[in-house]
Amino acid sequence: MKRTILLMILGLSAGLTHAETDPATAARAAAGQLEAASVSLEDAGSARDRVTALTDTVKAYEAGLSALREGLRRAAIREAQIGRELRAQEDEITRLLGVLQSMGSGPPPVMLLHPSGPTGTARSGMILADIAPALEARTAGLRADLEEVAILRDLQQGAADKLQQGMTGVQTARTELSKAIADRTDLPQRFLEDPVKTALLIASTETLEGFASGLTDIQDPNIAPAVPSDITSRKGDLPLPVEARVLRKANEADAAGIRRPGIVLATRPNALVVAPTAATIRYVGPLLNYDNVMILEPQAGMMFVLAGMKTAYGGNGQVIPEGSPIGLMGGEEAEMGAILSQSSDGTGNTRPETLYIEVRRDNTPVDPAEWFRTE
């Protein structure tokens, strides 16, 4: 029983939903994630490519924490479900306990005798033989439910300790990653920014779309050729740059009735954002009211616009490999008490941060769902 509830506590593993894998496989994957992340954080200091090692570490921590939060939510839902079932069957349970108590209160000879004589005794014995298995099964089910509730409550503290360790570990990994990126000098430089032209474009820009279009106009004619790549074959199969869910689809109206050609992703606070493919950084920095914006050029004539990061990594003109960290989302992680409170009422943790993604081809926006795996 304890193993069963442990599987529930551990919940989802990286890339594997409860429906896609058996509980044992999901448990092994989820249980190992935070432990593996802790080990990789220790090893990252001596890694040849610290940025890559720390990026993998942060992603492992984020996946493990997400799995643990989901496991706590499922456990809370299960505990509440059992509680409702027990309350609904309170009268039946009371009668069951009364029957069991009366059956065990008298001496065996008295229980087996019937006032009408041997025939009545035989009949009552047959009835007792019929109902005894049902009573036994019902009692066993009640005992199992009560044991499950006790185990759920007992494991909550253990899960909370693991969650606290993971939250501390991921924060350390993010700090180390920022330092490693600041020290990085191995990225090729495709062009050097013209700060005057960029500043004038920012000053005259009123929309994100207008800024992306303007980048093409101020491009230096002597710029080096684009990275020789063609991602057309990966259309529809590119990973999202951050662990998230789609909040709004392309051209779907928001609360103010505004429609945008990109998609809006809901992420957790401080989530790591990575490059979905190798690309040139055409622009990175604050813009309009989006906090930090990054515009990537994976190939000639195509741009990925990512807006809404609190921290952005890299510089204009750099060529970055696929999976490179390009920023962190903003926000503050919920306190442990709030996480456990949300888990206990079955709601889980919210995803309050949003990242906007726009895909432009030949300076025309196209639906990002055509390029990214959004389901």
Rank of each mutant, 00 (worst) to 15 (best):
A203C: 02
P195I: 01
L208I: 13
E193T: 10
P221V: 06
I223N: 10
D220I: 07
G166Y: 06
L215V: 03
S213M: 02
D183G: 12
I223Q: 12
F211C: 06
L215H: 12
G214E: 01
V170D: 01
M167N: 13
T175C: 01
L215F: 08
E209H: 00
D220Y: 02
A212E: 01
T172F: 02
Q171Y: 00
T207K: 02
D217G: 01
I223E: 12
G210H: 06
D220H: 02
V196G: 02
K197E: 13
P221C: 03
T168S: 12
E209T: 12
S204K: 10
D183R: 14
V196A: 06
D220C: 11
T207C: 00
D217L: 14
K179P: 01
E209R: 06
T216W: 06
M167L: 15
L187Y: 02
F191R: 10
K179C: 05
T205H: 03
K179F: 09
I202N: 11
T168E: 14
T205M: 12
L215G: 13
A224L: 14
L177I: 06
D220Q: 11
L200A: 10
Q189L: 15
R190E: 10
T185W: 04
V170G: 05
T207N: 05
T168P: 04
S204Y: 01
K179E: 10
A199Y: 04
T198C: 05
T175K: 02
A199T: 14
E193F: 03
T198M: 13
I218E: 04
T168N: 13
T216M: 01
A203S: 11
A199S: 14
G169T: 10
T205E: 05
T172Y: 04
L177F: 04
K197N: 01
S213L: 08
D194E: 12
F211H: 13
R174A: 03
P195Y: 03
Q219A: 11
E206R: 14
F211I: 15
A182S: 12
D183M: 14
R174L: 08
L192V: 07
I218T: 06
R174C: 11
A203T: 08
L200D: 03
N222E: 01
G169L: 03
G169R: 14
Q219W: 01
I181T: 10
A212R: 11
A224R: 15
D194N: 15
Q189V: 15
T168M: 12
D183V: 02
G210I: 01
